[in-house]
Structure formats: structure tokens, C-alpha cells
Amino acid sequence: MSRESILAAIKNNQPDHQALPDLHTFRRPNTGDPAAFKKVVETLGGQVFEIGSYTEIQPLIAEHYTDLNKVVAIQDSYLPGAATQWETGDGRQLEDVDLAIIPGQFGVAENGAIWITENEVKVRVLPFITQHLAVVVAAKDILATMHDAYEERIVRPESGFGVFIAGPSKTADIEQSLVLGAHGAKSLTVFLYTPKP
């Protein structure tokens, strides 16, 4: 068994224990800035709309997208009349989804990343296979740094799969020319939500 020989070699060869460094100096609790978040998402090629109610989503979509045949909305309130029965299958049933509107748990201002888990999207491949992705995230859920994310919001995994998504899928593999839309979603829209009083 290689397992035992590998472990034995490691045990024999590993250096003395050294303590883990303290990370708390990197924390910036309660300083997440939605404006900074918005700016970073835009530099990553995403677009951000500030909304005060989910009812604003539909007109914005009508204005900014064309040729939407199949739209998946995780909450009915995002887009009344969106596709139904999309959850059944191994993921391939989503091959023809043009737009998916999903909730994000929180966003990170320093890098524009939004945390999304299987619990919300139900089918893991949804945010990747859809041609276009829209994420609804509350402005109050913008954190400052990745340290705040891991130490405040996702200390433990709460689902089998979770992902930080920052901007649309992209590549610069051909002569370092940035092209949006590699294999995942070709565009990313963020609805930054601040409920109206």
C-alpha cells in the first residue's frame, strides 16, 4: 500500500512543528463598502444595478438583454413567469438556459467576488452553464475582505458545493487579449439590493 509508505516517509522527513500565524490583523469587520464592491465588479466586466425592490429586476432585464428564450429565476419574486421544472435532471437540461437569476449570500468589496452555494442554486452547474448570469445580493451583505468572509460568514461549509464568482467567465489565453465568455457565463449582472424603507 502506497498510503502507508507515503505517510511513513512524510512523518520521517517533515520539519519541526511551527505555530500557525494569527490572521486577525487582516480583518476589517463592518467596513464592507457597496460602492467599492460595485466598482470592482465593473472593472471585472460585470454590470451592477442598485435596486430598492425585486420588482425593478424585470424592467432592467427587458432593457438590457435581448433574445432571452429560457430564464431561470431562483425566486419567483425575481422574475415572475420564469422557467419551471428546470431542477430535474443531471444538469444537461440547463444547456439552453439563456439567463439565470440567482441569490448571492454576500459579496466581497476587495475583489468583487460573490459567495453562492448549492443550497441556493440547487443544480450546481446552473451558474456556469447559463449563457448569462445575474446575481441578487443585498448591499448590507458586502464585506470588506476575504478574511471577513471566511471568519464571519463561511467559517464552516454549509453545503456540498460553494463558489466565489467574480465577474463573467473570461480568458486571456490568446495573446493576453481579454475575452469575456470562455466556458461559463458570458456576462454577469449584479442586482445590489437595498430594501426601500
Binding site: N111, M146, G162, A166, S169
Partner: peptide, 28 residues
């Protein structure tokens, strides 16, 4: 898990000058 905070801050910035890669997928 919290150590991911350190490495994900460094990785893409060092690699290509991006703040983070588009996808940082956590397969559990």
C-alpha cells in the same frame, strides 16, 4: 478554511494581477 482567505487574496494577484479568479469553487 480561514487560511483560504490568505491564499485566495494572493494567488490571482500574483499570477495575473487580477483581484481573484472568476471562479473559486469549493468542492466538498
Amino acid at each position: 478554511r480561514k487560511h483560504l482567505g490568505v491564499f485566495l487574496r494572493l494567488l490571482a494577484r500574483s499570477a495575473t494581477g487580477q483581484p481573484i479568479t472568476t471562479y473559486s469553487s469549493h468542492f466538498r
